[in-house]
């Protein structure tokens, strides 16, 4: 599996460049055209990213998360890191990733909590962030039931991560 994740990127690039060359299109001009579009995309989403980083970091730095999670911590005997990870995963990829590395540091990646945090991190994406980013880029403000469905699916993923980690290890 390790080799797959290493070779997949070079192979995709190779196939696309070769295919374009064989089809006799001007691959270099195509690349530059696409790259220019990419620049425009980044410029368009930059304000939305700045807005989200600003808000998420105020929330994290205030430590209010520990306060919110206190009642759950009392019922379930999980380390608060695991619960913060499950709670933050849909909101911020960078935040949950740094919590995961903290868990690796404290308990080790091969401990139960280390495995659980890996599965939790892998089972879902940063729902809130992606929704904000994608809708923000095309200026849609009425998102209707997107967040509800996204978070319900995350909840299923998180519950399954707990169950499957228990079954597998």
């Amino acid at each position: 599996m390790k080799i797959v994740s290493i070779i997949v990127l070079p192979i995709v690039v190779l196939l696309i460049v070769l295919y374009g060359y064989i089809k006799k299109i001007d691959i270099y001009a195509s690349f530059l055209n696409g790259a220019k579009e990419g620049m425009e995309i980044v410029v368009n989403i930059a304000p939305a990213i700045l807005a989200m980083v600003f808000a998420v970091n105020i929330f994290l730095d205030s430590n209010v998360l520990n306060f919110i999670l206190m009642p759950i911590n009392k019922i379930m005997h999980f380390p608060s890191e695991i619960l913060s990870l499950a709670f933050l995963r849909p909101i911020s990829g960078t935040a949950s990733l740094s919590i995961m590395t903290n868990i690796f540091k404290i308990y080790g990646p091969d401990s139960f909590y280390g495995r659980l945090s890996s599965v939790l991190q892998g089972c879902t994406d940063t729902t809130i962030y992606v929704i904000a980013l994608y809708y923000g880029s095309i200026k849609v403000s009425k998102t209707r039931y997107t967040v509800f469905v996204g978070l319900m699916a995350d909840l299923v993923g998180i519950v399954m991560a707990f169950i499957l980690t228990n079954i597998f290890f």
């Binding site: 690039v13 460049v17 299109i25 691959i27 690349f31 995309i41």
Partner: peptide, 25 residues
């Protein structure tokens, strides 16, 4: 935020470029 934007800018620009080749072909 700026660091984050700068960190993924090259990847996005590169991939939209590669993608455009795939699209045109």
């Amino acid at each position: 935020a700026l660091e984050l934007i700068i960190s993924f800018l090259p990847t996005i620009v590169l991939w939209t470029g590669i993608m455009k080749i795939a699209e045109d072909a």
